[in-house]
Nucleic acid binder design. Structure first.
Lengths: 205, 205
DNA sequence: CTCAATATCCTGTTTTCAGGGGATTGATTG
DNA sequence: CAATCAATCCCCTGAAAACAGGATATTGAG
């Protein structure tokens, strides 16, 4: 009997694609698929696969949250993230929430099989490109900003002036200025335009 | 003999998924697939399909450009855009470049078949959701900005001050100020932060 | 408990931006 | 041809943000 796998993805083409790639693969047993988080959880109450391939974008819940929930309830299930994006923040969040690996949607059959085998052996699997991204982003990583700074950043992005922000957050305008100063410093930029640009690139807003 | 279709997409899973969805579909003849723009163009020199399903994200060329090129050389081929994103700007650009339709990657088999039939009849096909997006964005559409304004916008986004922009573009600082004023007016915002935010949302930078 | 991080507040000065006005040139187009 | 628009330039004012120095609670992890 092969490794029991299950897929959660709301894209028919992806589900069919993976089914087609793995259908006659030795050592792999296709248990079915779910199109959303809810029916995935419902399925798991009946049967448990060994590996779940899980999209990070689901209609009812983010794959990141679903990953957390599944790992909390069924510790033995290995989860492989599945996404067309090659973005470090998502990869990291999936891994933080208990995922054992991450495969891009342009993976080959070999890569898929490799991923499933690797996580079954208790190891971490990252797509080649995903691995590169992780490495690349080690240099230019997202600045670590505090909760308050993020609040201020969001309000800046929404076009509020320091004064308006101060009113909204019940703090002094000078405090807002300080947070702003720190944001500029942390992002290593020298004005608002670059700040907002960087922040969007890092997907903070 | 069915409608001859061809697929250009660099995602194995998508290609396999579509193949699986359409393989035994009556009235459709699968001609093959290409993983990039170059091999698509090479294939077209040998044979011409009636409908091409084309990803907007290709490794060597954007689907938007490829669409233009294919339509220029082979006017009779109907092109259906294929993407996981539901973004008005992409849809619009594909249609501007001669595409006959647009299908999201979470389309069902029925939707795919419908799309192919529709474009074969010389009509435009848009995915349900894509149609909604187009409608939604009719209200809040991208401002029309001039070449020069876009240049200035990019430099603002890169963190240059008016002075630096003036030097770089060999124009007076007052001219830069004017362009900036016009940008704020066109985007209907009142400061740089909002301007950059809007510009990124409209994917101008 | 201690220390570092965080959040808060202050006073200045200088630079940059926003918003108001008006004007000229050249290209396009109905 | 007249009208429109893009692109250029100019002046002015006041507001906002950036820069340079501080200082002081609070709190949370080791």
């Amino acid at each position: 009997m092969g490794t029991k796998i299950f897929i959660v993805d709301d894209h028919y083409m992806i589900v069919e694609g993976i089914r087609s790639l793995l259908q006659y693969q030795k050592g792999i047993e296709w248990m079915g698929h779910a199109m959303n988080a809810a029916s995935c959880l419902a399925f798991l109450q009946q049967e448990q696969p060994e590996v779940i391939l899980m999209d990070i974008n689901l209609p009812d819940m983010s794959g990141i949250d679903l990953c957390k929930e599944v790992k909390a309830k069924y510790k033995g299930i290995h989860i492989v993230g599945l996404s067309s994006f090659n973005q470090q923040s998502f990869i990291q969040k999936m891994l933080d929430n208990g995922a054992s690996g991450y495969v891009l949607k342009n993976a080959t059959r070999e890569e898929l099989v490799d991923a499933i085998e690797t996580v079954m052996n208790g190891k971490i699997f990252l797509s080649n490109e995903a691995e590169l991204t992780v490495k690349k982003n080690e240099d230019s990583k997202t600045p670590i900003i505090t909760r308050r700074e993020k609040e201020v950043l969001l309000l800046i992005a929404n076009g509020l002036t320091n004064n308006e922000i101060a009113v909204k957050l019940f703090i002094s305008i000078t405090t807002v200025e300080t947070h702003r100063k720190n944001l500029l410093a942390k992002f290593e930029v020298k004005n608002t335009a670059s700040l907002i640009r960087m922040a969007t690139q890092f997907q903070l807003i």
